[in-house]
């Protein structure tokens, strides 16, 4: 099970990012637990300066803008 966090204030791009991760996980048959982190101090704790950020199993893999589906698949399978 992959532990995934989407960091962001809840803006549209953040929601799209979360949705994209869910879709990709379903497509690949990967079991995930997805949390949204909206607290700004908590987001800063991950060291990024742009949102949405994506954290997979405690590691920041993405910051700023909607990620590409191919990248999401890589995060989920590696």
């Amino acid at each position: 099970m992959k532990d995934i966090k989407v960091l962001g204030s809840g803006c549209k791009t953040c929601q799209l990012t979360a949705k994209l991760i869910r879709t990709e996980a379903e497509r690949l048959g990967v079991d995930i637990r997805l949390d949204k982190v909206t607290d700004y101090a908590a987001i800063a704790g991950y060291g990024i300066a742009s949102t949405p950020g994506v954290v997979v199993d405690g590691k920041v893999v993405h910051a700023g803008g909607l990620p590409q589906a191919a990248n999401v698949a890589t995060w989920l399978t590696s």
């Binding site: 962001g8 803006c11 953040c14 700004y40 300066a49 949102t51």
Partner: peptide
């Protein structure tokens, strides 16, 4: 919408 994380960062 990234303004706050950017500012704090």
């Amino acid at each position: 919408c990234s303004a706050v994380p950017l500012f704090i960062g």
